[in-house]
Design a protein around this nucleic acid. Structure first.
Length: 269
DNA sequence: ATGGTTGTACGACAA
């Protein structure tokens, strides 16, 4: 039996917040850490520094200024070259790998879904159209591949699907990230791959749970107007191995914090 | 409150 800890974090600049990774490792001790919004071109990625932080195996896919994903791992892996270039944009929003584990390869996907802009109408807002197209493509991809097996997918999906994934369901129905069309799209994606929500596995749907708090609040903790945008899904065959989870809320108070906090699950394989 | 804050890269744009 192998215990595997997988964490995901929208780091919002890997170069600015690299020192905070030591705090994350101390708190969660992940075997694999998936990052989003690295905001770092590949040639400037701090590869050696992150290896020294305890992750000898690293893949990164970045660009100047925006987006960017990376997978940091204590376990060897191979990058999946066969995965799609979503919406044909080459915009560094996904990295898929096969982890080299004793029981056979485990497929792991790290996603950064488009935020979608401010106006929740695809006819007038191209960013929102891109978001819906991206999720639809991923859904079709999962459908054609059939139910996921021995697989995990994580990331900043930029959608809070459940009523208690946001601070006010009613007030956010028209706000990008919680609109009915986005929730339907994300639910269809989850069903297309027969994915199991590994965090709601531990936290009842009636309980508020957030992973992101806006920078724009005067006091994020007092107002507590959060959303659960960061997710970990596992294939059904792995769901029985879920042992624990963490949403590292204290990370929102770290010096120069990201607006997202790390999320982790531990699996027995 | 049609505001507010942050990061990239040095002004506008994305979130």
């Amino acid at each position: 039996m192998t215990a595997l800890r997988i964490a995901t974090w929208n780091i919002n600049s890997v170069r600015l917040r690299r020192p905070l990774l030591n705090e994350l490792v101390a708190a969660l001790a992940p075997d694999v850490l998936c990052l989003q919004e690295t905001k770092c071109p590949d040639e400037l990625f701090p590869l050696e520094e992150l290896k020294a932080a305890g992750f000898p195996h690293i893949a990164h896919r970045g660009m100047k200024g925006y987006n960017g994903v990376a997978i940091l791992s204590r376990i060897p892996f191979t990058v999946r070259a066969e995965d799609p270039d979503w919406c044909g944009k080459g915009d560094c929003r996904h990295l898929g790998v096969a982890l080299d584990l004793p029981g056979g390869p485990l497929e792991l996907h790290d996603f950064y879904v488009p935020a979608g802009g401010d106006v929740p109408d695809p006819k007038v807002n191209p960013k929102f159209a891109h978001k819906l197209d991206f999720v639809a493509e991923a859904t079709a991809w999962n459908l054609e591949r059939g139910p996921a097996r021995r697989a995990v997918m994580v990331g900043d999906l930029n959608i809070a699907p459940l009523e208690h994934d946001v601070w006010s369901h009613k007030q956010l129905l028209d706000v990008v990230s919680h609109t009915p069309v986005e929730v339907a799209a994300l639910t269809a994606w989850q069903q297309a791959g027969a994915w199991h929500d590994a965090v709601r596995h531990f936290v009842p749907a009636e309980q508020k749970l957030y992973t992101w708090w806006s920078y724009r609040a005067r006091d994020w903790e007092a107002s507590d107007r959060g959303r659960r945008l960061d997710h970990i899904w596992v294939s059904q065959d792995l769901a029985g191995g879920l042992r624990r989870h963490a949403v590292l809320k204290p990370a929102r108070n770290w010096p120069q914090a990201s607006d997202h906090v790390p999320v982790m699950v531990e699996l027995d394989l």
